[in-house]
Structures are given as C-alpha cells and as structure tokens.
Design a protein around this nucleic acid. Structure first.
Lengths: 415, 415
DNA sequence: GGGTCGGCTGAATCATGCT
DNA sequence: AAGCATGATTCAGCCGACC
C-alpha cells in the first residue's frame, strides 16, 4: 500500500524506525556514550568524524576450555558479546555497524579495524564490499604472545589491522614523516612489533582478574593516531571497551567519542579517562613536520640576486645545462634548437623522465667544479624570509657552500 | 524440458559438461599438467592429495604507471591472468577453484593459500564459507620489500598465508617438533621473516627480465612443506607458475602435481624441475622426530622387567602414589577406595585435571628419594629397541638418572 | 684479486593545488 | 570538472664496472 504524504505528519507507526534523536559530536567529544554502537552512530550526523578505530568482537568460536601443560586453565574470551550463531550472523552484524561507520566518517577520513584470523577475513571483505578502499593491512607482531600449549599449530603471535579510506580516490591523512622519524629514519613498515597489554597498564577488577578480555596496548593506539590524525581531530571508537583509544587520544591532543554497550565498561572507561594525562603543550605533539613551507617562485631567486641572469645551471652529471633568464624561466640551445621553460619543464626535457623536480635537478657550479642544488638557495631564502636566524651549524654549512662559488651572498629580502 | 533417461546414452549435447577423463594422481606425480586448474582438478579423484599450496592471482587493480624518485618505472604485474572485472568475478573464481581443491584434498589434508590485502580477505572468507577450518594465518615478513616511493602509505612489507584443514575436526599433520628445531628450540611463530626471491634463484627470460612476475622464494615453500607434510606425501599446486612448489617438494622427498594454464610457464617449470636436486638419502629428511618413534605400551615396561610388578609410582610432589600391576595397569587404595586404570586415567584422578600424560606425571622413587619420570624408562627402552647407541650426553644423563634407584638395568628386548 | 661505488630492481591498488 | 603546473619521493640486496 502506498503511503500518502499526509501520513508522514502523523505519529510514526511501530513499523517505522523510532525518530532519531540527533547527537552533536562536538558536544559529546571526550565522553563515552552508552548503548549499541549501531543505534548511537545513527544519531551522529554524516561526515562528522575524522577517523574511526574499531576493535569489534572476534567471533572466536572456541570449542571448549583450554588448559596449559600444567593443567591450569587459560582465561579465554567467553563473554556474550563474542557469541554469534554462524558466519552469516557475524557478517550481518559487521556490515551493519560498518555501514553506519562509513556514513559518519568524513569523506577524507579513514577507518582502522583490528582482528584475528577468526574474523578479519569477514571484516576485510565487508570493508571492500561497502566501498572503503584498503590502504594497508598492518600486522601487530606481539613480543610476548601466548604460546600454543597443545603444540598443534604455530604460535599465534600477531593480530591484523586493516586501514582503509572512505573512498577510493580521496585525500586521506598519513603523517609519513612523523612515522619515519618514529622508525629511526626509515619508512614505517606494515609490520609493527609491540608488546601485549600487561603489567600496570592492564586494568584489573576487584579480584585481580583482568577487567576486559581484549584490552589493547596504548602503544598500538598511539601509533595509529599518530599515523592518521592531526591534533584536534575527532576520533570515534564504536567498541570502546576500557577506553584505550580515548586515553591515547587525550595524550596526543586528539578529541574522541567512545561508544560502549556494557554499562560496566562504560563506568570503567570513564573513571580511567578522568585520570588519564593530557599533553599540556601542543608543541610537544609534533604533527607531521610537513606543514607547508611558503612557496618560493624560482623567479624570486633571480629578483633577489641570488641567481644573476645568465647563470648556468647543470644537472648532477653536468651533462645538461640551462641559462637563467630575467623572467624566471631557463633556456637552452640556439637558433632552431632553442627552448625555454620553467626549471621543471626543462628538467623533464633534459632527463627524459615523466616528471622532474627542477629544484633538486638543477645545480649551480662553483669555480672548483662543486655542484650545489638550487634547492639549497631556496632553503636559504626561506630562512631569511622567516626572519629566523640560522643555527650555528647551518651558518657554517651555508658559508662552506658559498665559499668559492659564483653565487653572491644572500641579500635581505622584502616581500 | 525434462530429459529422458535414454538421452544420456546418446552423444553429449554441447550444453552438457564434457565427459570426465580421469587422471591417476600417482601416475602424474612429479609432472606439470597444462590447463585450467579447475578443469584439471575435476579429473582428479576425491581425497587424493595430502596438501595443497596455492598462489592464486591477487587481483591487484593497479591504476597507472608508478615511478621511483629517480624516475625509473616500476615493473608492475600487468599480466592478463591478474585482471578481474570486479570483486564478484574474483569471488566466483575463488569459490570455484577452492571447492574443487577441497574435494581433491584428503579428509585429513590441509591447504595453504598466499595473498596480499588486495585479495586475502576474499580468499579467507571463501575458505571459511566452503567449510575449511582455519588453523593459522601466517605472515611472511619480507626482509627487503619494495619501498613506498610516494610516501603515501606504510611500506607494504608482508604477505599473508592462510593455513586451513579440510574440516573442523580432522586430524591434520603439523610437524611441531621439526619446526621448533628450525626455530632454535622455540615454538615456530605465525610471523616468518624471509627475503623475497631475487639473485640467482630468480628465473630470468632471454633478455634478463624476470621470467614470472610473482616467483616465490624456495625458503617459504620449504617451511610450508616441512610444517604440514611427511616424506612421500602428495602435494598439489593449482597455480604452479615457475614450479617453486615442485622444486621444494623434490628437495624434501615429497611428491607433487603442478597445474599451470600458461604453456610458457609449463615449459619453464618442467625444464627447471628436470635440473632440480633431489635429496638422495631419506634419512636426511628428518620428519617430525615424533611419529617415527615406535609406540611403547606401558605394559612393555613391566614385561621387560624395567618396572617390576608392585613398584610404587609417585607424582612429582610425592603426594599421590599407585602400584604397578602385572596387566600394565596401575592401582591405588584399598577396599572401597580401590581403583585402577591406565597410567593416564589414574593421573587424571590424582591431578584433578581434564587430562594427563601418565608418562610424565608418574615417577619412580630412588632410595635417596630422587624422582624420575617413567618417560625416562620408555626412552631407554626405545633406544634399546632401535638398537641405536645413545649419544654420549644421553648416556651420561641416563646413568645419572639411574644411579641409586631401585630400577634394574635395562634388559635386552626382543619383540 | 679484493674492495668500492654506482646502477638496477622487487605482487604497488603511491599527489596536490590552482585555474 | 578537467587540465595543467608544481614538485615530493626509496630500502635492501645483487651485480657489474672500475680501481
């Protein structure tokens, strides 16, 4: 039966969804919302959070109690929230919460989901089916995993995280340089070695038993947040548990919203968060270190006299050269072979590659033959413009580079 | 239209599947079968192979060319075999070949599938949907992965293998001890650190380019085969490629069947296998070092006089004791408290645990009070029966244990 | 012959802002 | 919205060339 428009003004029938009571994300930032995550997410506006971290039930399907060789019993995940009748039920649940998560995510946001081989393949397939675009799968290698007591399998020494963008071709955030610094100057890899959550960090109940079966280590959350968020970003965790995501967010100057169904965990997380430290100084948070430096047009080097008109520039093998023109372009050849263009365009011509960064391709040549990339001149100009004095080491380096070149010392610059 | 029975005797119509031409697995062991793996597997009898290793297409979905910072172009996987129109097509393909693989697998067999985040979640979900039972996901961590040239993601430094049994409750093979030895005496973990296939191992074509885009390192196959097969086992690889699985199988004394669609790869693999070394001495293959040992009934210790009837056995804390009976059982208590059973059953009774290994639970007690597990007696008996002299260290240990006990020196045994 | 240096390559879903 | 200009970006290992 087709509904007439006037029906809509009447009270909703039982078959219709309950009227949505909207939640203002900014108003609830920093708190834990009690309730089913699907229902709570429905009340959040679309495109309202920067990142989502989710640690959903693993659907462990343990056959029976497991005992160590000394016959002591292993404390397993036996909570009701981890029980699903079959894969279909788990898939339905996964699609449901993940569809809401995607709606709530900003177009340029990303989602992280952690799981084990029991559930991660269902989760990954659902992520792809819902239109997310996987960026990496990341392996958390445990330094101290539980051994395999029966000796029937490999020690299950890792868990898998999936990192995905909301859409295939969006501009997501990845703090590449920050993570490279965290990894001693090498690119951060997709395998992370971290201890499991134990010792004082592991929350206990009154009787000294672990308060939550699957509490994640803060170090894991730190790395996730540092990789994919900026200070001030809003992070959503729909399976908040003991609130590790919130603790990490607070420490890193990120905002968060936690959703948790179990009232006991809600209480626990709120008490934990009240005492969690907050980084007082935003400068300590770092960021990516690639906050855009002011753009410098090549022509400015000519105008400021750093590169006099007619100066010859060479590639690193000194096989190609161009001459600096007054209009900030460079030229090469004579007569019919003559050509001119930007440092980048002429770099493409000279190198034959598909693209070229002229700043690092072209060099000045000192009288003794030493080649210096013109990017070095740009760096010095930037330093002057910022009116920040060079460090002693930088001054030394600058003088050393300048010594014996045809290039005049940098001038004062006014924009 | 319903078909009448008599139709079946006539020549098959084009709509009917072609008549199956059966393949005898033993006859084709050690060779490469050319053709589509689904069609070829259909011709193999059900339950005919011990293990399957599969390296299916990853469905990479690469957008455009990628260049290194030095502008050289990355050689991508651009082969037609890796192209699928969408996830649905890939899923259908995956289900189809994997269903055949499961049929061909022995009930106690296992399957290994390798993939990356592009496909492994589809593969894992299909494995579960088809009734396989996942035993582990194993992470191949690459020592030397390709970097992320644009700094937009984590270095994709690993691939994932799924190891699954045909059914949930089958007795599959896992050479636990062999892998523990491979790992310096520690349990083998689910994360394996291995280099990618390069250098002389990497097959090249006439022009020095890689012969196959995705050749896997032999070390990876060695470990897989050592973990999950016994010498003489028949291993099937439905995506044989350059035949690394065959080379590893030949070296480890396993039999193999390779299936490969591309005639060029078939030729290449056959030539490679002809020159691949075969381990001549089966003793070098090792095995697990467990099931080679003959089973020793507890009663044999009584029959051989190693444990005279009436000897008292104690648990490690000397809190419980049993007496050895002539029939190879042990008994405890008197009158109404009397009970008897196997060393294992009585161990369960004494320890209160769910299970008990009587060989390590029960001990003989020397006059000076020293307790020695009866497993030590079994070990000495095994050594005699094998007529293999003990190593010097074993002799020392055995003597030390025997010194001052009530237990007579081992007798010569004839079975 | 040995050591050093530069070049090449590997299952890769690899850019962004302005006009 | 599409096109164009700018310019940011790599690690381990093998191999050959060259001292």
């Amino acid at each position: 039966m087709r509904r007439r428009r006037s029906d809509r003004t009447s009270a909703p029938s039982p078959a219709e969804p309950a009227p949505i009571d909207p939640i203002d994300p900014d108003a609830v930032a920093g708190s834990v919302l009690a309730g089913d995550c699907i229902e709570v997410m429905r009340r959040l506006p679309a495109g309202s959070v920067d990142m989502i971290f989710a640690d959903p039930p693993y659907n462990l399907q343990l056959a029976g109690p497991l005992h160590r060789p000394n016959n002591s019993r292993v404390a397993a995940v036996e909570d009701a929230w981890d029980k699903f009748p079959d894969f279909a039920a788990y898939d339905a649940f996964t699609h449901a919460w993940m569809a809401e998560a995607r709606r709530v995510l900003k177009p340029q946001g990303t989602i992280w989901v952690i799981g084990s081989y029991h559930n991660i393949f269902r989760v990954g397939a659902a992520i792809q089916d819902l239109g997310f675009w996987i960026l990496n799968d990341v392996i958390w290698r445990k330094t101290n995993p539980m051994p395999n007591f029966r000796g029937r399998r490999f020690t299950n020494a890792h868990e898998t995280l999936i990192w995905a963008a909301r859409d295939a071709r969006t501009r997501y955030r990845f703090n590449y340089k920050a993570l490279k610094r965290l990894n001693d100057g090498l690119q951060m890899r997709s395998d992370w070695l971290l201890p499991i959550c134990s010792g004082p960090e592991r929350l206990k109940d009154g009787e000294g038993r672990k308060a939550h079966a699957t509490q994640k280590p803060l170090a894991l959350l730190y790395r996730v947040l540092q990789a994919a968020t900026a200070p001030g970003d809003l992070v959503l965790d729909p399976f908040f548990g003991t609130g590790s995501t919130g603790v990490a967010a607070k420490a890193l100057g990120r905002r968060f919203i936690g959703i948790e169904r179990d009232p006991g965990y809600v209480d626990l997380a709120m008490r934990r968060l009240a005492e969690a430290p907050e980084t007082p100084d935003p400068k300590l948070l770092g960021g990516d270190g690639v906050e855009r430096e002011p753009r410098i047009a090549f022509g400015l080097l000519v105008e400021t006299g750093l590169l006099p008109v007619g100066t010859k520039l060479w590639d690193r093998q000194a096989r190609h050269s161009v001459k600096v023109r007054a209009d900030g372009l460079v030229e090469t050849g004579r007569g019919r072979n003559a050509a001119f263009g930007s440092i980048h365009q002429m770099g493409v011509k000279a190198s034959g590659g598909p693209s070229c960064n002229g700043w690092t391709f072209w060099h000045t040549r000192a009288r003794n033959g030493t080649l210096t990339p013109i990017d070095e001149l740009r760096r010095r100009l930037r330093a002057e413009m910022a009116e920040e004095p060079l460090t002693a080491a930088e001054e030394d380096a600058a003088e050393e580079n300048a010594a014996g070149t045809d290039i005049p010392a940098p001038l004062s610059v006014t924009t």
